[in-house]
Design a protein around this nucleic acid. Structure first.
Lengths: 206, 206
DNA sequence: CCATAGTTTAACTTAATTGTTAAATAATAT
DNA sequence: ATATTATTTAACAATTAAGTTAAACTATGG
């Protein structure tokens, strides 16, 4: 089993690390958990990645970059404002339905280490502040054209991200309130895509 | 300094525990941190509260109960739908402006221990599921009356909570994107109270 | 003033976890 | 076939944190 050109063990470890880190957070994650999840032993973990910190940095920078670039991709596309909003909502709900633990993981670790984002933000190419500027510009154009009512673009942007992402943060409470299992929750989120975009467009009517 | 009728040390410890637990989460919180924050030593911590787990349970159940009962208070009030929505948004943003780490703390710990909520939910009196039913009833009444357009009450409820709470979850990213410090962020949240209620009412126009 | 509850200090135990290492074994590329 | 890489095993060192304990000290209510 030597010299695998397809490095499947490395992949298995990274997958396992992603799962354990996102589900438990850095502090509560155990190297043993990751090893078990990857179906190998702790020694091999250190054979591939030297330390817990190194593994975490790798996983975290991947996730934060993907999170930011996913939004950037929509914002800097050539779509109409309406299509962009739909694009953002659909993209977030689709992504998080597959990885519901991601937002809490990202925000929990970011809260404890806010400097981290500054470094990783650069990987995305554009400065994250530019996304908001670009978005604001397009919103103000539509207001001037009269296609939407007057609205603060920054508050609008927060509204869009909030409604798309928050339910995954509050997932345990929502599941309890509605007595839903995972399947029920995912169905609700699928319906939610249209509910959210509709709610936004309706609000933006002049 | 014996036989203090005002148990100021106990209060100092609980305040410190709240701060450290909410900022770092259970796993990363250190008893030493709490002791230092309360300006006492670790021995005295165990003199008052036997273990880290006991302290955490106390803090956590306080917070989750307050979170749920804060919402319940609004939902079961005698206000009009519009005033309730304003009440919820104002209450959440006011509370979280003073305790911005609360939501991530609650959801992070709840995600890792979803059974917890079932027990604490009972402390609130009403079953949390009843809140949604009560809210849905009132929304459907307004729809029938024609004062608001047709809308799924559950999605509406998620929208309200999302827009009020999510910015505090995403606080580090928002602060970075806008290059805001704490004061700037709080001003933004103050403005946001009206922005959110306005956004909702505008969307609900028939 | 003195018994009592509060508090500190410091040393200690215990347990958990990360990280290391050496030696043995398995698989495979050349 | 053999050199090389991958993997396991198992024991160990180092570190960190929680929790305990005893002794001494402090403040104060009665």
């Amino acid at each position: 089993m030597a010299k695998e050109k397809d490095n499947k063990t490395e992949k298995a470890i990274l997958e396992a690390a992603l799962k354990v880190f996102t589900e438990k957070g850095f502090a509560a994650a155990r190297m043993d958990d990751i090893a078990k999840e990857a179906q190998i032993n702790r020694a091999l973990l250190h054979y591939y990645f030297r330390s817990k910190d190194k593994m975490f940095d790798l996983i975290f920078s991947q996730r934060i970059s993907e999170f930011l670039s996913g939004i950037a991709l929509q914002i800097f596309s050539e779509k109409s404002l309406e299509d962009k909003i739909t694009g953002i909502v659909d993209h977030e709900i689709n992504t998080l339905s597959a990885h519901p633990y991601l937002p809490i993981f990202i925000f929990q670790e970011l809260t404890q280490n806010p400097e981290r984002i500054v470094q990783h933000a650069k990987n995305v190419g554009a400065h994250p502040g530019d996304m908001l500027k670009k978005f604001s510009l397009q919103v103000n154009e539509e207001i001037k054209k009269g296609t939407i009512r007057s609205v603060d673009p920054i508050q609008l942007f927060m509204n869009i991200m909030s409604m798309a992402i928050y339910p995954f943060v509050a997932r345990p409470i929502i599941k309890m309130m509605l007595e839903f299992d995972d399947a029920g929750f995912n169905k609700l989120m699928k319906k939610r895509k249209e509910a959210v975009t509709d709610f936004i467009y309706k609000s933006l009517r002049p």
